[in-house]
Design a binder for these strands. Structure first.
Length: 718
DNA sequence: GGGAGAGCAATTTTT
DNA sequence: TTGCTCTCCC
């Protein structure tokens, strides 16, 4: 299956066989990076390195699975499972951290059975923090506060540190919330995603013997997608190899698209400074895309100023085609894609050779409608959707409480689901009692009869609930190891009354029951694969599932996904839609050049996923929050010289009345020489007449092409 | 205690 | 446009 090492290029060979010391592999898109990494793991093992002393870190679970399978394809069965002691450890950063934190829970100041809180749980904790601190959630929306806290954590700033550095009002509010938020997490015996990294980084920093042990344990570290590591990940990586320096990182600065999550492109740019004796290998040949596609990618990315220049060397023959399409609105855009797909399949393309990328997930809607109507099978790559379903979250919440009774978020979710007559008042009284006695909520349930404020009926109901939960626990091994997760799940499903409720109901509840069955099936698969699996391990694993993990290449359907989710994938034919100002680049990133460059990299990632066919489209009108909006073509289209589609004469304008108003401004014709106060001189490429909202596209002498609103830009004719 | 309906807000990307 | 929360009423 996997080709032998002889077929590697000299540069690839160097990256594979340079074992000792720090190694930086600067790998362009389609340069065979994944192949290099798997060959490297295989080569290390062949050279006599114990598989269990190799640790490879990937960006997504899907990438980890894929890599494991590739390593197995080499016949290295011992690397099969990340959890089997004999194999190489291949996982995401987050999974690795869970493992480390469980092993060194005591030093990290944790209980081993911690829950992992995802977006929804985090939001709920933040809301509670806002309430506790008496901060108005209209001025300080929970989502934004979470972002602020998350950025602090990713930069390794804990509450104590930031306390001393809070000068302005906003930061002071954030600090108060941060502190309270952490208290709430701690009370629930829970960690959020960022905590996994932060606590691991601090563990390694503060415990020399732990650091040393991990250095001994993993003699060879490999980190993929290094350009998207944040400060916490950077420190973890550094400390895990501090004694031997056998670290190999791979990445491409041009593909860094997670700045908003705290990723620091500086980590990869400064690798040679961190490790002065580092060897650097560049993989610049591209084995994926046609020369036409690479030309476009190259043109686009060269507009970024903050980058190390790099060439993309094509090795593939010319491919199918690169096409630009301008459509009237998103429905027409979807239909044109459907038509194109029909043509491609007629020419012999499989549906799983085709993908559509968009900037925001909401844009999948028009596509879905068109695909359903035309009966084209498709899959939306949004894996967490499944685990976000109510019935799934409910059932999992039961299991979470069994493992971690302190998890109040989970407990409150299920205490009255399905309805068993335990209402708001009762819950408040229990919570009050727990607060006064300083014990956990679950603890109070187990001795409900002692709570004076409760009526007799409420006491009985609570006692029954507690009894039920204890029954579930009974058959479980005390250490939870070797337990059959699927069986327990089934017992909880029946015993809790969830099954009865879903069985009784409507067709909607029928699909809910199907979903539960699917969950139980997947748990059964987990039971089979993991020999030392436990309920705790299962729960912690599924908490780390992510969107792009759900992509299944064998499904024979067109893949629909966000540009972010497309990272690391490749397809024969790629459609990228919505090349409009405000969408790509996204409106939230237009005020800042660094963010604009990240949007450009995002588009670059999308383009370079394509092997042969690349179809880029924009719609002149788009439905945004239910309103048909006139759009402006993305400046990126000008940067890749897609002018031909853009210069089409505008015929049936929806906005004819408007254009009459603006007669005075209308003579910005293409070719006109203009001056802008900060960008200097340039020539008009296009003028979009939208009355007082008219827009000019100007190519400035600096090489930049800008799309500017006439009324704000302060442009004058020369 | 529970459900239905009205009114309201918010709308990027994800481990 | 959607989806969420809060309130009111049974």
């Amino acid at each position: 299956m996997e080709q032998s090492a002889e077929s590697l290029t000299p540069a690839q060979k160097k990256a594979v066989y340079h074992f000792e010391g720090p190694l930086l592999v600067l790998a362009g898109p389609g340069s065979g990076k994944t192949r290099v990494i798997t060959h490297r793991i295989a080569a290390l093992i062949e050279a006599g390195v114990y598989p269990s002393s190799i640790c490879a870190v990937t960006f997504t679970n899907r990438a980890a699975d894929e890599m494991r399978q590739r390593v197995i394809a080499f016949g290295l069965r011992r690397a099969q499972s990340s959890r089997s002691a004999g194999g190489a450890h291949i996982s995401t950063f987050h999974s690795l951290c869970v493992r480390i934190l469980r092993k060194y829970a005591e030093q990290a100041g944790l209980r081993e059975n911690f829950s992992i809180y995802n977006g929804a749980d985090q939001k709920s904790c933040m809301k509670q923090a806002l309430k506790d601190c008496e901060i108005d959630s209209t001025n300080f929306p929970p989502a934004r506060m979470l972002d602020a806290v998350s950025l602090l954590k990713n930069a390794l700033k804990d509450v104590d540190f930031i306390k001393g550095h809070a000068d302005d009002f906003f930061t002071k509010v954030v600090v108060r919330l941060y502190a309270r938020y952490q208290e709430i997490l701690a009370a629930n015996n829970a960690l959020d995603f960022d905590d996994l990294l932060l606590k691991s980084a601090f563990l390694l920093r503060d415990w020399p013997d732990v650091r040393s042990e991990l250095n001994q344990r993993f003699k060879f570290m490999l980190i993929d997608e290094y350009q998207d590591t944040n400060k916490a990940q950077y420190r973890i990586a550094r400390d895990m190899v501090s004694e031997h320096g056998n670290i190999c990182v791979t990445g491409d600065p041009d593909q860094s698209i997670y700045r908003w999550r705290g990723a620091d492109i500086g980590n990869i740019l400064a690798f040679e400074k961190d490790w002065p004796d580092a060897t650097v290998v560049r993989l610049e040949e591209n084995f994926r895309s046609s020369p036409d596609i690479l030309t476009i990618a190259d043109k686009l990315i060269s507009f970024n100023i903050r980058r190390k220049a790099k060439v993309l060397i094509p090795t593939k023959p010319s491919g199918r085609e690169v096409a630009f399409e301008s459509c009237d609105d998103e429905t027409e855009e979807a239909l044109s894609i459907v038509k194109r797909i029909a043509k491609l399949t007629k020419q012999g393309a499989g549906l799983n050779d085709i993908a559509v990328f968009y900037r925001v997930n909401a844009m999948s809607r028009a596509l879905e409608e068109a695909f359903i109507e035309c009966k084209i099978p498709y899959q939306i790559v949004r894996g967490v959707e499944f685990y976000n379903r109510k019935e799934i979250r409910d059932l999992i919440a039961y299991l979470k409480v069994l493992v971690n009774p302190r998890d109040e978020k989970a407990l409150l979710r299920i205490i009255n689901t399905p309805a068993r007559g335990i209402g708001k008042t009762t819950i408040q009284r229990v919570a009050a009692y727990a607060g006064v006695k300083n014990v956990s909520f679950y603890n109070v349930l187990c001795r409900a009869e002692k709570v004076e404020s409760l009526g007799r009926a409420a006491k009985t109901k609570l006692a029954n609930f507690a009894k039920m939960m204890e029954e579930f626990k009974k058959d479980e091994n005390p250490d939870g190891i070797g337990i059959n997760v699927a069986e327990l799940m089934e017992r909880v499903y029946q015993g809790s009354g969830m099954a009865a409720e879903l069985r009784a109901g409507t067709s909607e509840q029928g699909t809910a029951a199907d979903n539960v069955n699917e969950l139980i099936n997947s748990a059964a698969r987990y039971d089979k694969i993991s020999e030392d699996g436990s309920l705790l391990d299962y729960l912690q694993q599924i908490s780390l599932f992510s969107d792009s993990d759900a992509y299944d290449a064998s499904r024979g359907s067109v893949a629909l996904m966000s540009l972010h989710a497309a990272k690391g994938l490749e397809f024969e034919n790629v459609f990228i839609i919505g090349l409009e100002e405000g969408i790509l680049p996204h409106a939230r990133s237009s005020d800042n050049d660094e963010e604009l460059e990240e949007e450009r990299r995002l588009f670059f990632v999308g383009i370079t996923r394509a092997k042969a066919g690349l179809y880029i489209s924009y719609a002149k009108h788009r439905l945004l929050r239910g309103q048909l909006t006139r759009t402006i073509p993305s400046q990126f289209l000008y940067e890749i010289d897609a002018d031909s589609v853009l210069s089409e004469p505008e015929q049936t304008s929806y906005y004819q009345e408007d254009s009459q108003v603006s007669d005075t401004q209308v003579d910005f014709t293409p070719g006109q020489l203009v001056k802008h106060e900060s960008f200097g001189f340039g020539r008009v490429k296009e003028f979009v007449d939208m009355g007082e909202n008219s827009v000019v596209v100007v190519k400035f002498d600096t090489g930049q092409t800008k799309t500017l609103m006439l009324k704000y830009a302060g442009i004058s004719k020369v």
